[in-house]
Structure formats: structure tokens, C-alpha cells
Design a protein around this nucleic acid. Structure first.
Lengths: 105, 105
DNA sequence: TCTTATACCTAGTTACGCTAGGTATGGACG
DNA sequence: CGTCCATACCTAGCGTAACTAGGTATAAGA
């Protein structure tokens, strides 16, 4: 379970440039060294949620010799949200760190 | 939302010694500098879950001039679980870190 | 006396991540 | 040419964790 930080990870995967869902899954898998091998049933609904929220925009593309793809891009709101999510993650992870270590000071 | 890491935090709060629910909430609040101000409806069910799972044991106490308290202690399995949860957290947080920063290498 | 802090509990809501299915195309291999 | 795999998309429904929103009760302080 990614527990609420999935959105941030997906947004971060799109920071370098637009990508389609399947590629996003691969990117996340590689970046996390296999730790986050997300099922499609996790990522696609998340993309829809994020688009619904205005953080992503999407367009269908059909490369000359390829399959149809839905390519997602960060919107301005998405970039801003990513910044906030990063800060939230930072705060959260530090709080967990101290909470977990607090008993062994 | 604590997203699945609540158990680890609660176990860690009991590592220094037995405590009752209300005190656990206070401990967590202080350790996290207010970031985790957990409602009772979050913590009490978690304690029951953890006891059910054999990671905690509890006993009722009635101090001479105090109210009844249910005091929880880490079991052996609880200590072991805490160790695992710490490792899991470490892995998880590192993976998120790299996933969030990966786009800006 | 009345409020506040302490101290416990639980039924029900919500939302997120995941399971488990489905559709379809392109390329590799025999 | 047929079959299989990887690619590429989708969604209904499940499980469960965290939280909301209530309830009970005692001790201390104003």
C-alpha cells in the first residue's frame, strides 16, 4: 500500500515530461528499484482522479506504427500540487522517523 | 491519514515501557511535534487490533487515586514486529524519496 | 457546581489501493 | 499463418485502515 503518497509519485513521474500510463508504471518501477511495481488497477484510476482534479491533462495519440496511447501532462496546478506534496512528504517522513526512533534516544 | 504506518508508531511508543492508551496518544503527539495528533477513534481500535494480533498484551489497572486504565505492553512478537516495521518503513521511505526526486537528477 | 482534562469505547462512513476481470494491437517465433 | 507475449487501455467491486461522531465516566480545578 502506498497510502496516500501515490499521487505525489505519479506527478513526479510526469515532471520530466508527458508520458502515457504504461510508461509511467515502468518509470516508477525503475526509479524505486522494483519496490513500487504498481498494478494497472492502481495507476489508471489514479490518473483519472488526478485529471478530474485538474492536476493532469490528457490527449490521445496514435503513433504511426503503434497502439493508441493516452498521454498525460502536468498542468500548472499539477506542478504546484507536486511541490506541496513533496513538502508534505518531507514533513510526514520526518515525523515518522522521529516517532519511530523516539523510544531509543 | 497515517497510511499504514500507524501500527509501527504505536509499537514504537511502547518500546520504552508499558503505557495506557491516552498516554500513548500524548507521547506520539509530543514526539512528532504535533504532526500526529491522533483522534482516540484511531488509536483505540488500533490497540485492539494489535492485541488481537498478539503484538500487545493489556491489563486493567486502578491506581489508588486515579481512573481505570488499560495498560498495554509489547509482547515478544510485538518487539519483533516493530523491528520489521522499522525496516519496512526505511525501505518505503527511501523508495518514495528517490521516486519523488528522480525527475530532477 | 460546572467545566475541563483524563480515560475508555464503538458503530458507521469514507476513501484508497488493489484484485480480477475485460478489450485490443503489434511483434516474435515456429 | 497461428500462437503467444508484451504493450496498452479500462472498470466493477472488495478489503481495510483511518477517521467521524457519538457515548460513558471519574478527578481536578475554577
Amino acid at each position: 500500500m502506498l497510502k496516500g503518497h501515490l499521487d505525489a509519485i505519479v506527478l513526479a513521474a510526469l515532471e520530466a515530461g508527458p508520458a502515457h500510463g504504461y510508461a509511467i508504471i515502468e518509470t516508477i518501477k525503475q526509479r524505486s528499484a522494483g519496490t513500487f511495481d504498481l498494478p494497472e488497477g492502481t495507476v489508471y484510476p489514479a490518473l483519472h482522479r488526478l485529471e478530474q482534479a485538474g492536476l493532469l491533462s490528457s490527449a490521445w495519440t496514435t503513433p504511426p506504427n503503434g497502439r493508441r496511447r493516452r498521454v498525460y501532462s502536468l498542468t500548472k496546478a499539477g506542478s504546484a500540487a507536486l511541490g506541496e506534496r513533496r513538502k508534505a512528504w518531507s514533513r510526514f517522513s520526518q515525523a515518522v522517523d522521529t516517532a519511530l526512533e523516539g523510544g531509543r534516544a
